[in-house]
């Protein structure tokens, strides 16, 4: 069953178009990876789905609702969570306060119950609930971000580069948690990643973005195991000059 469908999307920032005729489908309870070189529009794609960019043309459908042109907080209320790379926490508030804000629209009892759930899922957070986010390490902060998103029990999580600037072991832990979310809680997840190895390992489907267009799409397992596809993938063709650009 398709949870998210993007059809022929043309989007960008103000008058600068970034995505061209982009289509993708995300099945329920799957993990999808969006891969590609720098500047290919991966983050823009996530932002467009969440309503943070200018949409020129095309449509986005989430769980049966046409969310094209909707405001981010309306989309959030429909059950989507967006975890951006930057500006994703209140640095001067502590973890508990951040969680409280993430679940702002919940009632008091719901908030306490959800917080308990979230802390059960990410018990490591209990160790630094009262610490200001500014003082947390990269890995701790990513955990906090995940926790904040989970307060609202979203149906879909859009994760922008979860492993960015994290040490390898720490990134492993994060990805473990992502897998757990999907496997044990049936969460549908879309990840944008630079770390292609990890992304292919964890995801069911992959999309390759080059210069704002989907260059390739298929099962991650196939992509990982297929040497020919790997060469194609590693020796990307840039549509502008048809030169091989290595990732």
């Amino acid at each position: 069953m398709t949870l998210l469908e993007v059809s022929s999307l043309n989007a960008g920032y103000g008058k600068s178009p970034i995505l061209f005729d982009l289509s993708l489908e995300v099945s329920k309870e799957s993990i999808s990876a969006i891969l590609g070189p720098n500047g290919s529009g991966k983050s823009t794609l996530l932002k467009s789905i969440f309503g943070l960019t200018t949409i020129y043309n095309g449509s986005i459908n989430f769980n049966g609702n046409d969310i094209t042109g909707m405001k981010p907080y309306e989309i959030a209320r429909l059950g989507m969570a967006y975890l951006p790379q930057v500006e994703n926490t209140y640095l001067n508030l502590n973890v508990r306060e951040n969680l409280l804000m993430a679940g702002y629209i919940l009632s008091k009892e719901e908030t306490n119950a959800r917080m308990q759930e979230v802390l059960d899922f990410l018990p490591v957070l209990k160790g630094f609930l009262e610490k200001k986010v500014l003082t947390l390490s990269g890995g701790e902060r990513q955990m906090a971000i995940m926790a904040m998103a989970l307060m609202r029990r979203p149906a879909l999580m859009l994760f922008d580069e979860p492993s960015a600037s994290l040490a390898s072991k720490v990134a492993d832990k994060i990805f473990e948690k992502i897998k757990e979310l999907n496997r044990d809680f049936g969460m549908t997840i879309v990840i944008v990643e630079q770390d292609t190895r990890r992304a292919l390992e964890i995801s069911d489907e992959s999309y390759l973005l080059v210069s704002g267009k989907v260059n390739f799409h298929g099962k991650s397992k196939e992509l990982a195991e297929n040497a020919e596809l790997g060469r194609l993938f590693l020796g990307l063709r840039s549509h502008i000059q048809d030169k091989r650009v290595s990732v």
Partner: peptide, 11 residues
């Protein structure tokens, strides 16, 4: 002259 596509609202 605008070479850019029109936005959804203008559409």
């Amino acid at each position: 002259k605008r070479p850019y596509p029109k936005t959804t609202e203008e559409h």
